[in-house]
C-alpha cells in the first residue's frame, strides 16, 4: 500500500515536471493543468484559514501568479512548494487583519441534509466552528485544518510545514481542546 502511494506521488511529480517544462518553454496555457490539479485543496486550506471566500480566492490567485513567476526555481514537488506559498499567504493575511465577521458562500456547497431544520443546525455549527477557529493562534488553526479538514497525515503535514510530527501532534491536540472548550456547552 505504501509503495503504491509512493508510486502515485512519484508519477504525479513526474507529470508536474513535464508540465513545468512546457510552461518554461513558452506554453503559458499549460499552467492551467497545474491550477486545475491543485486549486481545490489549496482553496480549501485558504478558506478554512481565513474564513472568507473572497480572501481565499485572492490568496489563491496571488499564490499561483507567484508560483508562475518563480516556476523555474521549483525543486522537488510542485504541490508541496505551492502549498507553502498559499500557507504563508494565509499566515501573512492573519497577521495583518483582525476579522470582525466570517461568512461562507452557500452556493458553492451541496447540501446533503433532508430537512430545513437539519440545514439550519448545520449552518449554525459551521458559523460557530468558524468563530471558534478564529480564536486560535494561526499555527494551531493551520494544524487543525490540515489534520481534520484536509485529512492529511502527521507525516505529510510535517513534510509540508518543515516541522516535526511531535510538534504538530501537540498543536492539533491543543486546537482540539480549545475548540471543545468553546463549543461543547452547545454541541456536546
Amino acid at each position: 500500500m505504501k509503495t503504491t502511494e509512493t508510486e502515485v506521488d512519484a508519477g504525479l511529480e513526474n507529470q508536474d515536471q513535464l508540465v513545468i517544462q512546457r510552461v518554461l518553454a513558452g506554453n503559458r496555457d499549460a499552467f492551467r493543468i497545474l491550477i486545475s490539479r491543485y486549486s481545490d485543496p489549496l482553496y480549501r486550506h485558504a478558506l478554512c484559514m481565513t474564513g472568507s471566500p473572497d480572501v481565499a480566492e485572492d490568496i489563491l490567485q496571488m499564490s499561483f501568479i507567484k508560483a508562475y513567476q518563480h516556476l523555474a526555481e521549483v525543486r522537488g514537488r510542485f504541490d508541496a512548494w505551492v502549498f507553502r506559498i498559499v500557507a504563508n499567504g494565509c499566515k501573512d493575511w492573519l497577521k495583518n487583519i483582525r476579522r470582525s465577521h466570517l461568512s461562507y458562500d452557500e452556493d458553492d456547497q451541496a447540501s446533503g441534509f433532508a430537512t430545513p431544520e437539519e440545514e439550519l443546525d448545520r449552518t449554525e455549527l459551521r458559523t460557530d466552528l468558524d468563530r471558534a477557529l478564529a480564536t486560535l493562534p494561526a499555527s494551531l488553526r493551520e494544524a487543525f485544518v490540515m489534520k481534520h479538514v484536509e485529512g492529511r497525515s502527521y507525516e505529510e503535514m510535517a513534510d509540508l510545514l518543515g516541522t516535526t510530527v511531535g510538534a504538530l501532534k501537540m498543536r492539533v491536540h491543543r486546537a482540539r481542546e480549545a475548540l471543545q472548550a468553546l463549543l461543547e456547552e452547545k454541541y456536546a
Partner: peptide
C-alpha cells in the same frame, strides 16, 4: 463537508488572465 468544497469555477479563468504574458 468542508473536505469536499471545490474552487469556484471562475477562479481558474481569473488566475489565467492575471498571469504575466511572458514565460517565467
Amino acid at each position: 463537508a468542508r473536505r469536499h468544497m471545490r474552487t469556484p469555477t471562475h477562479i481558474q479563468d481569473r488566475i489565467m488572465e492575471a498571469l504575466p504574458q511572458h514565460a517565467p
